[in-house]
């Protein structure tokens, strides 16, 4: 039994055309026993940046609170909101601080930034549990269903998807991947982030 699989749960993020999407499942378990079907693993960082924290559930809450603390301090002192790539490095260094006694979480980030010229830049990234960053151009996955998510995403994802198409792609990827994973599922939550709004939807999934 791996500690990363103790509570179950998965997160995926994808890049679209001037938009990004991030999705998580809603299960919280104690190994095979399901405890909650409303355990969200994605949290807002700013209104254009979200972070997903799959892994050991105690660390999901601990890190959610720790990132909120550090981002709030950054925002109030810097007098501006944190940029996605800056936040990625904050995540990385926070995890590496615990290099020899890590948080059992593999964070996934998705956000968009606007360049001074007004160009919209989609951003996704993921790290391992000690903060090794992976900036991807297509999609990133993490959690107990990560191997299955890779397979489905590889088949469904294509470049430059519009927000609604990206929503459909990420939703189908998530729903179908978690059905092959005993430790993820029990509903899905999807966020699609565009330059002027965030679409948040909760999807029903198989409850077995």
């Amino acid at each position: 039994m791996s500690i990363m699989e103790y509570n179950g749960g998965s997160v995926i993020a994808m890049v679209g055309k001037e938009c990004v999407a991030i999705a998580c499942d809603l299960r919280l378990g104690n190994q095979a026993l399901g405890i909650s079907s409303k355990f969200e693993k994605i949290f807002p960082v700013t209104d254009k940046l979200y972070v997903g924290l799959p892994g050991l559930a105690t660390d999901v809450t601990t890190l959610k609170e720790l990132f909120r603390y550090r981002v709030n301090m950054y925002t109030i002192k810097e007098e501006r909101e944190i940029e996605p790539d800056t936040f990625a490095h904050l995540v990385s260094s926070t995890l590496y601080e615990r290099r020899f006694g890590p948080y059992f979480i593999e964070p996934v980030m998705a956000g968009i930034s606007t360049t001074p010229g007004g160009k919209v830049k989609p951003f996704i990234a993921a790290t391992d549990l000690i903060g090794c960053l992976n900036f991807a151009k297509d999609f990133v996955v993490a959690g107990t269903a990560s191997s299955k998510l890779f397979g489905v995403a590889e088949g469904l994802w294509e470049p430059d998807l519009e927000p609604e198409d990206l929503f459909e792609t990420i939703s189908q990827t998530m729903l179908n991947a978690v059905d092959r994973d005993a430790y993820s599922g029990w509903g899905t939550m999807v966020y699609v982030i565009t330059k002027d709004k965030v679409i948040q939807r909760t999807l029903k999934g198989r409850m077995d």
């Binding site: 609170e65 720790l66 909120r68 603390y69 709030n72 301090m73 109030i76 002192k77």
Partner: peptide, 13 residues
């Protein structure tokens, strides 16, 4: 004051 406020948020959500 800002540290105290964020410290409280961390402890008591």
């Amino acid at each position: 004051a800002r540290s105290a406020a964020q410290g409280h948020l961390l402890s008591y959500d």
